[in-house]
């Protein structure tokens, strides 16, 4: 309770500010309508009208919650208006990008740790690759993937997601593979271990905690990459595409529900990955104090 008390207060305060914000931002429209109709609404009427607009500037929390509930529960899962359907498309791409990012990150990290040449050549470019805004590259990745015969949008979107998620894995794995100290390396040398044995029996096991720690960041980055990838690529399904559709039709409820669906998806992914991390740490004998 001591830990949750302050968090609860903060969250409630955020909701209170949100309601006040909804009232203030939506009032203009209500007042305009009233002036046009020639009426002079009292405070309670204004309050009621600001909380239930279809095209509110800032929809009130309960409106967003209702829209989310509607999109998740009331629509059939196969429906194009179901948030579960769009969420699943985004989830699929996020996972594909996540796997791609892990593979690329681990392979590059191994190359960088084993070869001094790769370290000097590739590491600066790995950093530079993250300073390039992916959104700019996204349409070109789609064009190139199509030219290479990818067929669907899943491949280019997964590449964009992988582009963002490989970096945290790479950085952590390089640190992890280099974490064994001189003592441990020397011990293996006295055993007459070959470089391959040093890698498999010492460096790789030592890097696992680092690897799992990086997965949380990587999965969040992969989701961001997927949503960004859905925007300029002409996608029609997925949460990012949903936001774009809401924006084009001027329907704020679609944008807000898609935004919150994405947030919920992110929370679930991070929760699952940290669960896996905890199990893995326990299996490796860590975490028991």
């Amino acid at each position: 309770m001591k830990r949750f008390g302050p968090v609860l207060v903060v969250v409630l305060t955020i909701f209170a500010i949100w309601y006040v914000g909804s009232f203030l931002m939506n009032r203009t429209w209500v007042m305009d309508q009233a002036a046009r109709a020639g009426t002079d609404p009292g405070f309670t009427e204004v309050l009621r009208d600001t909380m239930n607009q279809d095209r509110a500037k800032l929809p009130a929390p309960h409106q967003v919650a209702a829209e989310l509930y509607d999109g998740v529960v009331n629509k059939k899962v196969t429906s194009k208006r179901s948030l579960v359907y769009h969420g699943f498309i985004t989830f699929q791409t996020t996972m594909a990008g996540f796997v791609l990012g892990i593979v690329a990150g681990v392979v590059l990290a191994v190359a960088i740790v084993l070869s001094r040449f790769a370290d000097l050549t590739l590491m600066p470019w790995a950093i530079i690759s993250q300073t390039i805004p992916v959104v700019a590259l996204a349409p070109m990745i789609v064009v190139l993937a199509n030219a290479a015969g990818a067929g669907s949008l899943l491949v280019p979107k997964a590449i964009i997601a992988g582009y963002l998620s490989f970096f945290p894995v790479l950085v952590s794995m390089v640190a992890g593979l280099r974490s064994p100290g001189g003592m441990q390396l020397d011990l293996l040398r006295t055993y007459g271990a070959s470089p391959g044995q040093v890698f498999w029996k010492l460096r790789l096991p030592a890097s696992l905690p680092y690897f799992f720690a990086s997965l949380k960041i990587a999965v969040a980055a992969s989701l961001v990459g997927t949503i960004v990838g859905e925007l300029p690529t002409g996608a029609i399904s997925g949460l990012g595409a949903r936001m774009l559709i809401g924006s084009q039709f001027g329907n704020p409820m679609i944008m807000w529900s898609a935004l919150f669906a994405a947030a919920i998806l992110a929370a679930m992914l991070i929760w699952i990955v940290s669960g896996i991390e905890k199990i893995a740490v326990r299996m490796m004998g860590g975490g028991q104090t």
Partner: peptide, 17 residues
């Protein structure tokens, strides 16, 4: 928690505002 969310999603809302 918020720092880990895909905040890019606020882009359409900001454009509307």
């Amino acid at each position: 928690f918020v720092a880990a969310l895909p905040i890019v999603g606020v882009a359409p809302i900001m454009v509307m505002w």
